[in-house]
């Protein structure tokens, strides 16, 4: 758990957990969603209290940083979203704008739903998280 998670007020922490919980519950294809700091700490996760979410937080932050380096190498400005597809599903890492510390949402989704639908739901969840974290 990130030491900075104590920094957020209880109201913000509750709102983040509520949004993540609602996001996972209303998107059956989503099996895991982890809000992570860019230096690899889990800030919040659904399902909560699993060792695998901490590992996903660290791995997704590494992948995000590598994607940033690749995007710079290709002469583009900044990586916004990272999408990894497998036969069984997809992993998406969305950058969340204007937060302190910088954060991403890592989502694991099975192939049971169209990927476009999952991406759309992820984007909506990120907007909500961005609003609540800015206020925190």
């Amino acid at each position: 758990m990130h030491p900075d998670s104590r920094r957020f007020s209880q109201t913000v922490t509750n709102a983040v957990n509520r949004y993540l919980s609602h996001f996972v519950a209303s998107n059956p294809a989503v099996t895991m969603a982890v809000l992570t700091s860019n230096d690899g700490f889990e800030i919040a996760a659904q399902p909560a209290n699993r060792a695998s979410t901490q590992r996903l937080a660290a791995m997704s932050s590494s992948m995000r940083a590598l994607s940033d380096a690749l995007v710079v190498e290709a002469g583009m400005s900044k990586c916004r979203t990272l999408l990894i597809e497998s036969e069984a599903g997809a992993i998406v890492v969305f950058g969340i704008a204007n937060t302190e510390p910088s954060m991403s949402l890592a989502v694991v989704a099975s192939a049971s739903n169209p990927l476009g639908h999952t991406l759309w739901a992820c984007r909506n969840c990120c907007s909500l998280l961005e609003d609540v974290l800015k206020s925190g």
């Binding site: 860019n38 940083a65 590598l66």
Partner: peptide, 23 residues
């Protein structure tokens, strides 16, 4: 060099301003 440094948000453990997270 290719670097993957990001801002270190855990100053309690180490005072460094940035940290490498991939390679």
């Amino acid at each position: 060099p290719v670097s993957t440094e990001v801002i270190n948000s855990d100053k309690e453990t180490h005072a460094k301003s940035t940290t490498t997270v991939a390679l």
